[in-house]
Computed example of a mutant assay.
Amino acid sequence: MGMRIGEMARRAGVSTRALRYYEQHGLISARRGPNGYREYDESQLALVAEIRSLLTAGFTLEDARPFVECLRSGNATGDSCPESVAVYRRKLAELDDQIRTLVARRAEVAAQLAGACPGCTVHVEIRGRRT
């Protein structure tokens, strides 16, 4: 017998709503018991953990699909398949673009500050340290 949605949510550390959402998008699956309740097996816990980890790191639900499929196909990790590596590469490229954009915006704001306040200094905070 599998876990009902409440137990699955508790063990996975997500809401029942999130589980239904993941199921709706085909990332996890549940059997329906004779009473109509969703029943999840243990293997779904690893899939939910993978999805949560990726979402926390800024990936989209669709980005998670290759990682979930990699796990489903019997691999020990979700990132050991070429499709998952391709998602990592694409995400890194997106982040690099965002970083370049932010650096350019920061330079613009720093220049505006320098123009508005000629004696003001601009401090840079990197990983909690102010320079």
Rank of each mutant, 00 (worst) to 15 (best):
R127P: 00
E42A: 14
R65E: 10
K91S: 07
V103N: 09
M1H: 08
E69L: 12
A9V: 04
D96F: 06
V68Y: 01
L92I: 14
R11H: 08
Q98N: 06
L102S: 06
Q98V: 04
E50D: 05
V109A: 09
R100N: 13
V103T: 12
Y22G: 02
I28W: 02
G6L: 08
R105Y: 02
R17A: 13
E94F: 03
A76V: 12
F59H: 04
A12E: 05
R100F: 11
A46T: 09
G58A: 09
T131F: 14
L92V: 13
A12H: 04
L55V: 13
G74E: 09
A57W: 09
Y21I: 12
T131M: 09
R32H: 08
G78A: 07
H25N: 12
L45P: 05
A116I: 06
R32A: 07
C70M: 02
G115P: 00
V122F: 00
E83I: 00
N35Y: 08
R10Q: 12
H25A: 11
G74M: 08
A30G: 03
G6Y: 03
S73G: 10
F59I: 08
T16Q: 13
R11E: 13
P118W: 06
C120A: 14
A116D: 06
Q24E: 15
V85M: 10
A49I: 07
S29A: 12
L47D: 02
R105A: 11
G74C: 07
D41E: 13
Y40E: 02
G115K: 15
R4D: 13
S43I: 04
P82E: 13
V85D: 08
E125V: 15
T131L: 14
V85A: 12
Y40F: 15
E125L: 10
L45M: 10
D96Y: 09
G128W: 05
P118S: 05
E62Q: 14
V68R: 04
S80G: 11
R4N: 15
G2W: 05
Q112W: 05
R105Q: 13
I5F: 01
M3C: 03
S43K: 15
G115W: 01
E23D: 12
A111F: 02
A9C: 03
G6C: 06
A9W: 01
R89T: 13
A64G: 02
A110P: 00
A46M: 05
D97M: 07
A49T: 13
T16C: 10
A30H: 03
V68W: 02
A9L: 06
M3G: 02
G13R: 09
L61A: 03
G58H: 03
